[in-house]
Amino acid sequence: HVGDVYVVNTVAGKDFVKDPGLHRTLLGDGLACATAGFLGGPPVTTYSEVTGAMVLTKVTDPTVIRIAAVTGIVFSVVGKVSALLKSIPSAVLGGIMLLLFGTIAAAGIANMVNHQVDMSKTRNIIIVSLTLTLGIGGAVISFGEFSMAGIGLAAIVGVLLNLVLPQDKD
């Protein structure tokens, strides 16, 4: 959530950490997850796909994003619209997903450039390359019935590498 908010900050050119505040965005995310669980839905994520769409369309107005969210909810409960959306060929949806998730990765890299992350340091190259490869490459780690893959696995590996790999001495 925090990483997504920072990338959305960069894409929108605004500081959502200050206004409305990270505590409010976390609360909203938590309420959305709790509501989804209460209604019998799966765990939810909030920003990654939206960030990709924002980068592609250049539309960052929160009102437009809210309208899109409400439209998505309505589409999901109207059977005829759901059937229409299911008629879209999987190759088309796959292409859209490639574009969206590639755009998310590019927005993350742009965020590192904007914050002047020194990519000449081996430590930073290792963290970025492993995180991207695990997140995009479909790696899966399994322990018995538990498994983790994709963006979740990449995020945990990125945080762990950031904590474990030694910093350069000045």
Rank of each mutant, 00 (worst) to 15 (best):
61 D>L: 00
46 T>D: 00
118 D>H: 05
52 G>R: 02
104 I>L: 10
48 S>I: 02
86 K>H: 12
100 L>H: 04
115 H>P: 11
68 A>R: 07
90 S>V: 05
61 D>I: 00
100 L>S: 13
93 L>D: 07
64 V>H: 11
57 T>Y: 05
117 V>R: 11
116 Q>L: 11
62 P>H: 04
78 V>C: 07
99 L>Q: 09
82 S>G: 15
54 M>C: 07
105 A>F: 07
84 L>P: 02
115 H>C: 14
63 T>S: 15
57 T>V: 04
37 G>L: 15
84 L>F: 14
65 I>E: 00
85 L>C: 07
58 K>A: 08
71 T>P: 00
74 V>T: 07
93 L>K: 13
82 S>W: 15
95 G>F: 05
55 V>L: 04
46 T>R: 00
63 T>D: 14
93 L>G: 11
67 I>K: 14
42 P>D: 08
63 T>R: 15
91 A>V: 10
109 I>Q: 03
111 N>W: 04
91 A>D: 15
42 P>G: 05
52 G>M: 05
66 R>W: 05
84 L>S: 08
105 A>W: 09
33 C>A: 06
78 V>M: 14
120 S>R: 12
68 A>V: 09
30 G>C: 01
103 T>E: 06
64 V>F: 08
34 A>D: 06
36 A>M: 08
94 G>W: 01
108 G>C: 10
69 A>G: 09
74 V>K: 06
107 A>L: 01
57 T>R: 05
63 T>A: 11
29 D>W: 00
53 A>M: 07
107 A>D: 00
54 M>F: 06
53 A>K: 00
87 S>A: 14
98 L>C: 15
66 R>G: 02
113 V>P: 00
29 D>G: 07
120 S>Y: 09
72 G>D: 10
105 A>L: 12
96 I>S: 02
44 V>D: 12
116 Q>G: 07
35 T>P: 03
53 A>Q: 02
87 S>P: 05
100 L>W: 05
98 L>H: 15
73 I>P: 01
100 L>C: 09
121 K>E: 13
57 T>H: 01
57 T>P: 00
117 V>M: 08
118 D>K: 11
78 V>K: 07
33 C>F: 03
113 V>L: 14
109 I>R: 01
86 K>C: 11
104 I>Y: 00
66 R>T: 10
97 M>Y: 10
83 A>N: 14
47 Y>M: 11
82 S>E: 11
40 G>D: 09
61 D>K: 03
102 G>V: 04
51 T>M: 04
75 F>P: 00
